[in-house]
Structures are given as structure tokens and as C-alpha cells.
Nucleic acid binder design. Structure first.
Lengths: 114, 114
DNA sequence: CAGCATCCGTGTGGATACTG
DNA sequence: CAGTATCCACACGGATGCTG
């Protein structure tokens, strides 16, 4: 019988969905993507304020992971005080678009059972 | 400044996406949804074989959670040997449809960087 | 301001064995 | 066959303090 994932191959997923889950898997990642979608350029402290409850460590590590996955771009300006701006890459924009139906599903389901 | 989530309210998420993430958050859940989408009715052992690496405990708990979230339906037949069949609910079908763009995103991105 | 270093608690998931 | 029952490991996220 065919299987849905292929153990032994690092990224050999047949249906592809869990590859995406690896990118957005993380407590705050989809909210970060959303924040960077609403406004294309955000600073570290700004993102922190947008996500009450997130700690600096987790915010930093999430941003680094999203950057490593090629969906977030980090631009550091050589100034004092330091300024760093985060934005979505092209791939990140596409990912966010791909996330919209999921958000719509959640909204629609809540409107049915409030 | 407005925030993306509203701490203090259990399900008061503004953008809705992380509500969906709570449903599909789990190591194998999207694969389960996918399996039940490919073929509408699956048995426990069948699902276990489709997901090499999953343990019985995790499979059972994931199925129970998906059932509690109203996306999976469990039908138990009173037979010997026991037979239980799992299928997607209407809501589960819609969830799976909402997941397709995400899978497409992952596939498209892999085709660009193999 | 934008982080990193360190330590730590919890929960999710996993291994194994057993049952109706 | 379709699960429970235990026990356990470790990754993830969190709290706190310090730095360029």
C-alpha cells in the first residue's frame, strides 16, 4: 500500500502539506506572517507589541527560522540606535495568500457556532 | 495600537488563522485529513499503515481530538472482530479544501528549489 | 533598540506492554 | 481489530538578565 509520507527521506512528503506545516509550525508564526502582510515593513519592537505575550527570545528565534525558510527578509540598518526591518519575501507573500482560505474556514465556522 | 490576538479571551483571535492552527496543530493531523480526503472511509489499522511511524496512542488521540473539533466522524460497528470507520465531516471536507492552497504552495516551492 | 545567553517547566509526542 | 495504560524524552516555548 502506498503511504502518505516517506520515512527515510528527509523531505519526501507526497502530499506536500506537512512540508508547509514545518514552515508555519510554531506558536506565533502565522500571526507574524499576518502582521507582515498587513503592513509590509515592521520593526522588532513593533512586532513585539503586536503580539502581546510573545517573549523576545521566541520572537527572535521565530523570525530567524522564517528567514531561514525564505519567507521573511531581514534588513539591518547600520545606525545608532539600531534599526532592523522585517518584511515578507515573494515566497512569503504567496504563503500568506495560501493561508487565507484557512483563515476564512475558521471565521466561517465560528460564525456558525459562536 | 491594535493587536493581532486578544489575550484574555479564549478564542478571540482577530485574524482567525491561529484558530485553524489549533485544529490542525499536531504532528500527523494534516496527513490524517489528507488520508480521509483521498478515500472517504478509513479504518484504524488502515490509517496506521498509511502513516508509517505513528504510534497507536498518538493515532488514537489525534483522531479523538479531530472528532472533538468536529472535522472527523467516528462510526463504531458492533461486530466481532471490532470495526470502526473514520470519515471527514462536512466541516472537515471544507477544512481540507482550505488546506489545498497550502499544499500547492509547498509543492510549487519545492519544484523551484529541489 | 534589538537582540543573545542561560536556565527551566511543560506538553506533545513516542515506546512498550496489555485488553475487550 | 481497535484500542487503553504507563512511563518517558526532549523540543518548544517562556522568564530573566545582560550586551553592542
Amino acid at each position: 500500500m502506498a503511504t502518505l509520507n516517506r520515512p527515510g527521506t528527509a523531505e519526501g512528503h507526497v502530499c506536500g502539506i506537512d512540508t508547509a506545516m514545518e514552515v508555519i509550525g510554531g506558536r506565533w508564526k502565522v500571526l507574524l506572517l499576518w502582521a507582515l502582510h498587513e503592513q509590509p515593513c515592521r520593526r522588532f519592537g513593533e512586532l513585539r507589541r503586536l503580539l502581546p505575550g510573545i517573549t523576545e527570545k521566541v520572537l527572535a528565534s521565530h523570525l530567524r527560522e522564517l528567514e531561514a525558510d525564505g519567507v521573511v527578509r531581514r534588513v539591518s540598518y547600520d545606525e545608532v540606535p539600531p534599526r532592523v526591518e522585517y518584511s515578507l519575501t515573494e515566497d512569503g507573500l504567496r504563503l500568506n495568500d495560501a493561508l487565507q482560505p484557512l483563515a476564512a474556514w475558521a471565521r466561517e465556522r465560528r460564525s456558525r457556532q459562536p
